[in-house]
Design a protein around this nucleic acid. Structure first.
Lengths: 187, 187
DNA sequence: TAATATACGGAGGCAGCCTCCGATTGGCTA
DNA sequence: TAGCCAATCGGAGGCTGCCTCCGTATATTA
C-alpha cells in the first residue's frame, strides 16, 4: 500500500533545496512569491519545481504541515489545562502566530477551512477538530457564549490575525484578540 | 486655480465607458480584475485607460469616492442619534457594507488608512475623521471602553468585514460585528 | 477649412504561470 | 565495469497581465 520507492539522489537533493528556498522566499515576499524565482535560487529548472510541487499550495502545505500538526497537538495538551477559557485563548494565540508566518497566509487558511478541495484543507481540518474540543469544553463549563460556533471563533481569530498584519507597527494581534474576547462595550 | 478645461467630447465618452466597465469588472472579479479586460470591454485601447487613470487605485478611487463621502456624511447625521453606541454600530455596519463592495477592497482600505501616499488615503481619511466623532461621543457617554482607539475600532470593523467575505454563505458580517461588540465571554 | 492641441491605440518589453518533451543521469544488472 | 532504461531534469514556448511610448487620428477653434 504505502511502499514509497526512495527518491533518486538528485531528486531528493533538488526537493530539499527547493523547500529551503521556498521557505526563504515566502518569508520574505509572502505567499505570492514568484515560483520561478524560487526555482532559480534553488539552482533548478522551473519544470523541476512543478514536478515536485504541482501547485503553489502543495509547496506551502509541505512547509506548513508540521507546524499545523504541532498546533493540533498543542490543543490536545491544553485540554488538561485547569482554566478552559485561558486554555482556549492561549491556543488561539498560538494559531494566530502560525497563520502569521507568511504574509497572505491567513487568507489562504481561512479559505482552506471551507474548501474541501483545497490542498491545505486536510491539515487545517485536523487542527480545527482538535481546537473544537477546547471550544466545547469552554462552553460546557460556562466560560464561553453558548451561541458561538467553532467556525465563527476560528474565523474571528483569523480576522484578528489578519488585522494584526494590517497594523502599521505590526504585532498588535494579541491586543486585538483580547478585545474580541472581552468585547467593546464599556464594562 | 480650479479652472478645469472641459474634456474633449471623445475623451469624456471614453472616460465614462471606462468607469462603467470598471464597475462591472471589479464587482465581478474583485479589485484585481484585469485592466486590459476593462479597456477591451469599454472598446478602448489600454493606453487610453492609463491616460485617464494612471493607476488601478486612481480608478478605484473614482468609483468609490462618492460612496466614502456619503459614509462620512452619514457619520455626521448619526451624531444626533439619541443612543451613541447604537449610532456607532449602525455607522460601522454601513462602512462594512461599503468596503464589501468589491472582493479585496477591505485589504486596500485598511492599508490606505495607514499609508498617506495611497491614492485612497484622502477619501478614507475624511471618513475616518467623521467616524472618530461617533467614537469619541460613545466613549464620553460611557458606552464604549475608554481604552479603545478609533484606529483599533476601524481595524476591527475591517477585520469583521474581511471575515464576512471568507464565510462560506457570505453575509455573516453583521453577526461577526455583533460578536466583536459584545465579546465572547459567557455573560 | 485648415491648424493644432488633445486624445487615441496598440505594439513591445517585461514578468509570472504552467506544460510539454527532448536531453541527461542515477542506479541496477550482467 | 559497461551498458541500459526508467527516473529526472531543464527550459523553451504559449499565455496573460502590467505599463510605456510614440506615431496616428480627430475634436475644436479660428
Amino acid at each position: 500500500m504505502t511502499d514509497v520507492k526512495p527518491m533518486r539522489a538528485d531528486a531528493r537533493r533538488n526537493y530539499e533545496r527547493l523547500l529551503e528556498e521556498a521557505q526563504r522566499a515566502f518569508a520574505e515576499h509572502g505567499v505570492e512569491a514568484s515560483l520561478e524565482d524560487i526555482a532559480r535560487r534553488a539552482g533548478v529548472g522551473i519544470g523541476t519545481l512543478y514536478r515536485h510541487f504541482p501547485t503553489r499550495d502543495a509547496l506551502l502545505e509541505t512547509l506548513l504541515r508540521a507546524r499545523f500538526d504541532a498546533q493540533a497537538e498543542r490543543a490536545r495538551e491544553l485540554l488538561t489545562h485547569p482554566e478552559p477559557l485561558t486554555a482556549l485563548q492561549s491556543w488561539l494565540a498560538g494559531l494566530g502566530d502560525a497563520t502569521g508566518t507568511f504574509r497572505g497566509l491567513v487568507e489562504l487558511t481561512a479559505d482552506a477551512l471551507n474548501d474541501e478541495s483545497s490542498r491545505l484543507y486536510e491539515s487545517c481540518h485536523t487542527m480545527r477538530e482538535a481546537g473544537s474540543q477546547l471550544v466545547e469544553r469552554a462552553k460546557r463549563e460556562g466560560e464561553l457564549r453558548q451561541d458561538v460556533t467553532t467556525q465563527e471563533l476560528l474565523l474571528l481569530l483569523h480576522a484578528a490575525s489578519w488585522a494584526g498584519g494590517h497594523l502599521p507597527g505590526g504585532g498588535g494581534m494579541p491586543r486585538l484578540l483580547a478585545l474580541v474576547f472581552e468585547g467593546l462595550r464599556a464594562s
